[in-house]
């Protein structure tokens, strides 16, 4: 059984009284440990697909299974639990919480999980070391460079050890050298067994992935 299975997923939007199909009967499987790049022009349905994979947006039709669980058959709050346990998001433009320090940002997904004293900090420091930011844990996001902020975002996505990392244009706001560093970091994580699905425009970034899904008009381009 694949880690991720999308079966005939469609997503329709209402636009000016007309129904627009963002995704049409998409069937995809992703095995554990894969690094998949989703590519396609603007409006091809990349972000819609990422939202469905992340448990953020209900599809109009079809089924989505992770680990054999019918994700959109879950109640609303259970869907939140699924996101916490299975998904690590790396957003475009980092999306760190500006009033929390680097350490607090990384600990954020753990704030709603109980455990012994200090475990959150230990876990956060561990991933911060992994992304090479161990020394900057007390800084606020605006005191970091773009590349550093992206590393914090990756550390936050990793901290609760989710089986799947979903990255939306992770190098979109970085210069090419820093972008390459980030891609190398994601490559390393994948090499350690982390499943990564990444939306990108950049063919150079897609080269780091081991498989690519090309979308056009909501369908997979063969």
């Amino acid at each position: 059984m694949s880690l991720i299975e999308l079966k005939k997923i469609s997503k329709l939007y209402e636009s000016e009284g007309e129904q627009v199909a963002a995704l049409q009967e998409l069937t995809v499987s992703v095995e554990s440990g894969e690094f998949v790049a989703i590519m396609g022009p603007s409006g091809s349905g990349k972000s819609t697909l990422l939202n469905i994979l992340g448990g953020l947006s209900h599809p109009s039709a079809g089924n989505y299974f992770v680990d054999g669980i019918d994700i959109y058959g879950l109640a609303n709050e259970k869907l939140a639990d699924f996101r916490r346990e299975y998904i690590g998001f790396v957003f475009q433009s980092f999306q760190l919480i500006p009033y929390l320090t680097v350490l607090e940002n990384v600990m954020l997904p753990l704030a709603i999980i109980s455990g012994r004293n200090g475990w959150q900090k230990e876990a956060a420091c561990q991933v911060l070391d992994k992304v090479g930011l161990g020394s900057k844990e007390r800084r606020l996001p605006n005191q970091l460079s773009g590349g550093e902020q992206e590393r914090v975002a990756i550390a936050r996505a990793l901290v609760n050890r989710p089986p799947i990392i979903l990255a939306d244009e992770p190098t979109g706001n970085l210069d090419s050298a820093t972008g390459n560093e980030i891609m190398a970091l994601l490559g390393n994580l994948n090499a350690e067994g982390q499943t990564i699905i990444m939306v990108t425009h950049n063919p150079e970034n897609a080269a780091f992935a081991r498989g690519t899904i090309r979308l056009k008009d909501g369908r997979i381009q063969v």
């Binding site: 939140a80 996101r83 957003f91 997904p109």
Partner: peptide, 16 residues
């Protein structure tokens, strides 16, 4: 709104 979206994406429940 954006911040709340991030909280929800990383698994915060509505109650949180």
């Amino acid at each position: 709104t954006r911040e709340i979206g991030i909280f929800r994406a990383i698994g915060f429940r509505q109650g949180h």
